[in-house]
């Protein structure tokens, strides 16, 4: 592995990296003078505000996710996980989906939590189900959906059912296909923290926090950069141009939900304002968004490996959009 070489290299350059940060911060002042005109442009400033807003908004949720993930590393032993879970992984999938009700946050917190669960020996398919379901089925999101849609019970129920189904279908696909198709990649964990097993609980908690925070936050920043650019550059009117066509409308809102990467507690308010679209298309927007968007895709590539994300991201998009259409056909 390259880690060994990287370690030997980086010990020699330890101070180098610290000074780089200091240098960048010092350079910031002359840079502001030089780039003043560009930095003052409205389009750039709007991008900067939206970008910083997405990052600032997700920091507390990410920290919460890291704390939960750390607690899981400390309190949950692999033996306990093995005892509590149903013996058959396929049966564990619906349990994991419903367990998502207990994590009332939006999606940023859930990726590190799923990572922590897999690290404690939860089958990957089960952790993925939990990760997909939690941001969409928890009470905070149910309430905000109800408020946004003026108390429409059918919309709230349809979102809950479709999101839960999406998460379970993906879980079952990974349970069923992992054994049969070696081409389907399971999430890879960079480090299972085994070499920390002999240490105290506090040390293991810190080790998990160190491991999880920086990759998750860094990839979130990457996603936020793109999402903010889309937010500023693509007016909603462009998306609305195809609202009348049933198939294109679903496709447009799937892509829109993916690139705009809204918080699952806020997306219902935006969905309501897309008045030109049918309820089916709005439901697709509400089901796809929490399950998969550009910042989640970036975070998942960082946590679980690029080979996994390349298959997982399109799979979730297709399953979520299809499930939402079917549920809308039955309920709405």
């Amino acid at each position: 592995m390259t880690t060994t070489t990287a370690e030997t290299r980086s010990t020699g350059r330890g101070d180098w990296q610290g000074w780089l940060v200091v240098g960048l911060l010092l350079l910031a002042v002359p840079a502001e003078r030089l780039l003043g005109d560009l930095l003052a442009a409205s389009a750039f400033q709007t991008w900067a505000t939206v970008f910083l807003a997405v990052v600032v908004q997700s920091i507390p949720f990410l920290v919460l996710g890291i704390v939960l993930s750390g607690l899981i590393s400390v309190l949950l032993s692999e033996r306990l996980v093995a005892r509590v879970m149903p013996k058959r992984t396929a049966l564990a999938v619906p349990f994991a989906g419903l367990a998502g009700v207990a994590l009332p946050t939006c999606e940023c917190a859930v990726v590190p939590v799923a990572n922590g669960l897999t690290r404690r020996g939860l089958p990957p398919a089960v952790a993925l189900t939990f990760m997909l379901a939690a941001p969409a089925v928890n009470p905070a999101v149910i309430v905000s959906t109800a408020v946004a849609f003026g108390g429409r019970v059918d919309m709230v129920a349809a979102r809950f059912v479709a999101s839960l189904l999406t998460a379970m279908v993906i879980g079952w696909i990974y349970v069923w296909a992992a054994a049969r198709f070696p081409a389907l990649k399971l999430p890879t964990l960079r480090d299972r923290l085994h070499h920390h097993d002999g240490e105290s609980r506090w040390e293991r908690f810190l080790a998990a926090a160190w491991h999880d925070f920086l990759p998750a936050a860094a990839f979130l920043v990457l996603g936020a950069m793109i999402a903010a650019a889309i937010n500023v550059l693509v007016p909603v009117q462009w998306v609305e141009a195809v609202a009348g066509h049933p198939f294109l409308a679903v496709l447009a809102l799937t892509v829109f939900a993916f690139v705009i990467a809204l918080c699952s507690e806020a997306d219902a308010f935006v969905a309501v304002s897309l008045t030109a679209f049918s309820d089916t298309a709005k439901l697709v927007f509400l089901v796809v968004g929490p399950a998969m968007d550009i910042k989640l895709a970036a975070m998942e590539a960082g946590q679980f490996g690029r080979a996994f994300a390349v298959q997982f991201v399109p799979l979730v998009l297709v399953v979520a959009a299809t499930t939402a259409c079917l549920v809308a056909w039955v309920i709405l």
Partner: peptide
């Protein structure tokens, strides 16, 4: 425990918060 070099990206929001200090959204 070296971590991914993508972690340097976290300096971008820091730079924007301290240098650009973008205002609340407005007419744009």
């Amino acid at each position: 425990h070296p971590t991914t070099h993508v972690a340097w990206l976290l300096l971008l929001p820091v730079a924007i918060a301290f240098v650009v200090q973008p205002p609340a959204l407005g007419s744009y």
